[in-house]
Amino acid sequence: MPNLTAPLVLAGGLTDINWTLSFFTIVLFTLFVLVLSKFAWGPLLKAIDEREKSIRDALEGSRKANAEAQETLAQHKELIRQIGAEREGIIKKASKEAEEFKADLMAKARAEGDDIVRRAKEQIARETSVALAKLREEVVDLAVLGAAKIVTSSMTPEAQKKLVSEFVDTLPQVKN
């Protein structure tokens, strides 16, 4: 059975301040705050701080890694671009060289061909002049022979000589 000896005074009980209770409340609440700060809020706030720090660090780390990756990517792109340019240069150079080589070859071949033709022409000319000289000698001999036959049959030796020399004079002069 509760012993409700406390006087039940209307209104008065409601707004009266019980100084003993207030004093104990202050003492208890101060202790409460101290205990909580030491054993609850302290560790709790520390844990929260640590987690926030770890999250911040992780974010920072990922940002850094991302930046690094971006940089590497840019480097690689640049590298690829360089390589492409180099390759193009090599191909250009190679095709130019090939072109030059081809032109060179063609020039050489043409020169050789020309040389061969020139030499053949020279030889032909030489052969022709030899053949002409021979032919002229033959013609002279034949003419002499023919003339001798004619002369022996119809002419005096003086008339023959005169005729032959006149004939020979009319022949074209041959070089060599």
Partner: peptide, 30 residues
């Protein structure tokens, strides 16, 4: 309930008293 009853037992359990008893402190509490 107990408070209300106790108030009734003591013979002055008017509504305002019950109300006051509910919200005010008690010097000796069980």
């Amino acid at each position: 309930t107990g408070e209300a009853h106790a108030g009734g037992d003591e013979g002055h359990g008017g509504p305002s008293e019950i109300l006051m008893h509910h919200v005010t402190d008690q010097a000796e509490y069980h």
